[in-house]
Design a protein around this nucleic acid. Structure first.
Lengths: 197, 197
DNA sequence: CCTACCGATCGGTAGG
DNA sequence: CCTACCGATCGGTAGG
């Protein structure tokens, strides 16, 4: 029930509507006039709430990035095996996405329309996040939990591919909730890495 | 060595340059003037080779779809176990993408800009392709090759997520060629499905 | 939040 | 493949 438009500031409502529009049509194809119409106002009126079209994209992308980072922070503090850490990292990632599938889709598909220096900053955050997952995988290999002959880059990219497409097909009204989705996904991916004996 | 612009018709060169541009900037943000500049001609001159901007997108998307279909056709004819079939399907899919990473990226990220009825047709082709993979997974479950408690939709969507993001991170100049990439990916995904004993 | 408007750029056509 | 051009639409501003 998080995606209602009530109990948001007007600016928050503008950003939420924009997220839906960016997801639907893509950032470049979504016009400020489309957005205004969705909100029942004139296009020019949008600019009393936001500075520019791109400012909206910036807040969507960087807010999601912050959520992902916080989720991984918590997982890294856990005193558990590498495979447990990886599983929990996956579950956390899925949960963050499930909390806001619309923003997640924008985060994933539209970030490339950020201008510099925002694009550079965004990509740095992303590579840092991926590298933290890669470290968990490396830890698992060192400790003998994961196969030693896996290509770590391939493994981590496959992992993120699976995670990041979830907003494209997951139906929040389906009978599988986001936690067990995360668990099943983690199970499927981790068991593909784990030694089979 | 496939992505050279030589030994193509002029129309083919236009489409290839457009693919690169669409990949880089996204379909909506790529202008016909950008494309003309890339080719060293005036924007208006493009229209002696192509009917419209969207016609280019259509040929890119549907040509890739045909390649994927043909690859799967060949795999389905094989008299092998379901897990072998799945592996070979994955390897084939990766090979088709590796043959043209640029068009693959456009196929994946830009197809939504197709107008009707092309968009509908495209999505039907895609769902059909996915369902054929799902049938292979179901066959594997029936025959006891795969775990019986897997969520088949989740499994097939995770599979395609992993495959479809490959053009975003795979470096064709890296020391891993597309065939062994496909094999490793297949191994990683299938072993996540297979019974462990 | 509105009216009125701007300069830039868009996909595409006419006619060579 | 070019010059010349069109109507539509874009993000955004001025001034209330």
């Amino acid at each position: 029930m998080s995606a209602t438009t009530e109990n948001l500031t007007r600016k928050g409502q503008v950003i939420r509507s924009a997220a839906e529009l960016f997801r639907e049509k893509g950032y470049a194809a979504a016009s400020m006039r489309d957005l205004a119409q969705k909100l029942g106002i004139e296009a020019a009126s949008l600019y009393s709430h936001i500075k520019s079209k791109e400012e909206i994209l910036q807040s969507l992308c960087f807010d999601m990035a912050t959520e992902f980072r916080k989720s991984l922070d918590a997982v890294e503090k856990q005193q558990v095996s590498a495979s447990e850490k990886l599983k929990n990292g996956i579950i956390g990632h899925i949960q963050v996405m499930a909390k806001d599938l619309t923003s997640s889709a924008v985060f994933m598909n539209e970030h490339r329309h950020l201008s510099q220096p925002f694009l550079r900053d965004f990509l740095l955050l992303r590579i840092n996040y991926i590298n933290r997952f890669k470290s968990i995988i490396e830890e698992g290999v060192r400790k003998g939990e994961f196969k030693s002959n896996i290509d770590k880059k391939l493994a981590v990219m496959t992992l993120f591919s699976s995670l990041n497409w979830m907003p494209m097909w997951y139906d929040p009204n389906s009978n599988i909730d986001s936690i067990s989705l995360g668990q099943q996904l983690a199970d499927m991916l981790v068991n593909g890495l784990k030694k089979s004996n």
